[in-house]
């Protein structure tokens, strides 16, 4: 079930990249949690969005630094050399758009959820505590690969 949930997010990312940035997703692959090597994401900008409702947990998007700068350039037509507040905020909104779109498709499967405002950080860890499940996927585009990690909290009882 969780891999199906994650597919909703990777599909939404695919559509959003195509619509906003004219980027085609080359592949998206679901990975087992053991294959998520955190070292790979050190230079990434991570965006965590909390999910509440029928599904409780968090979705984390890991965008490579260079890809992030290119994405903001495509949208604004301006050059960006560093990850600053403008860039982080634009990226946070894109993650917000992707998550909203994913939740909209999940609502058609009778899963009603809401999201909290995005939290942006650089090189964040994504711990998995007891009672949680972690599923990962990678969305590959011509300007970089985006890591998606979905952590769901099992409800008691």
């Amino acid at each position: 079930m969780n891999s199906e949930l994650l597919t909703s997010f990777s599909d939404a990312a695919n559509q959003t990249f195509k619509l906003l940035l004219d980027l085609d997703v080359i592949t998206d692959t679901v990975q087992s949690p053991e294959n998520n090597d955190k070292k790979e994401y050190i230079e990434n900008i991570d965006i965590v969005i909390q999910i509440t409702g029928d599904l409780n947990g968090e979705i984390m998007y890991s965008f490579p630094k260079d890809m992030t700068l290119e994405m903001v350039k495509i949208m604004s037509g301006m050059e960006f050399k560093e990850i600053d507040e403008f860039v982080k905020s634009a990226l946070g909104e894109i993650a917000n758009i992707i998550s909203g779109s994913a939740l909209s498709s999940l609502s058609q499967a009778q899963l009603i959820c809401d999201i909290r405002p995005p939290k942006v950080s650089e090189g964040q860890t994504f711990p998995v505590s007891e009672g949680c499940s972690l599923y990962g996927a990678k969305v590959k585009t011509s300007i970089g690969d985006v890591g998606l990690n979905l952590r769901t909290i099992q409800s008691a009882g």
Partner: peptide, 21 residues
């Protein structure tokens, strides 16, 4: 300045998505 930079970043992504979607 920080608040305006954050506002500008969100605004462009929101506006483009709103018009296109």
């Amino acid at each position: 300045e920080e608040l305006m930079q954050q506002f500008g970043g969100k605004l462009i992504a929101w506006l483009i998505n709103h018009v296109l979607a």
